[in-house]
Design a binder for these strands. Structure first.
Length: 152
DNA sequence: GCCAACGTTGGC
DNA sequence: GCCAACGTTGGC
């Protein structure tokens, strides 16, 4: 079992949207490193911190899980999609995704600001300046530590 | 809305 | 293969 963090802009797709839908294909990722994590790293059942970016209080708002093996992101084949990639083909799809399943909301948002205050988390890519990865691994120790903050 | 960071593209 | 230009992310 591995642990991950996935960013989403709540204006586009929030934790409430995921709760309503239950399961959602995580489409639109167009960064190779993030794709590789989904394609090569994720296994069904892995745990995910759901993170809200580009919002008033960016931070971790919920927990999800990986609900499918990786498969091609359908949106890359649709010319009308804003995620369309003309260089990708069905024979050799460039972009892969996984389905993400709602588990629960956190009792409170654990803000980026708060995460940065803990020296224990200084090695997380998330709190590093300039980091823009939208899918990243989380060390088990960091995962457990962050969950203790929920009740603090 | 600004802008730093950084990934991608394309000319050479 | 280098690197300048450009585009995007995302905190602030």
């Amino acid at each position: 079992m591995k642990y991950w963090l996935m960013k989403s802009e709540p204006d586009t797709f929030s934790i409430d949207d995921l709760q309503r839908k239950g399961v959602e294909p995580w489409d639109g990722v167009r960064n190779y490193q993030a794709r590789n994590f989904m394609r090569d790293g994720m296994k069904v059942g892995d745990r995910i911190f759901f993170y809200h970016s580009n919002t008033d209080v960016p931070g971790i708002v919920g927990i999800a899980s990986v609900a499918s093996p990786s498969y091609p992101d359908e949106s890359q084949f649709h010319p009308k999609s804003k995620y369309y990639d003309e260089k990708s083909t069905r024979e050799e799809p460039r972009w892969m995704l996984v389905d993400v399943k709602f588990e629960r909301k956190l009792k409170r948002t654990i803000s980026l600001d708060e995460l940065k205050k803990h020296d224990e988390l200084a090695d997380m890519p998330l709190v590093r300046k300039g980091n823009r990865l939208s899918v990243m691994p989380v060390a088990k120790g960091d995962w457990d530590f962050i969950l203790t903050l929920e009740n603090a």
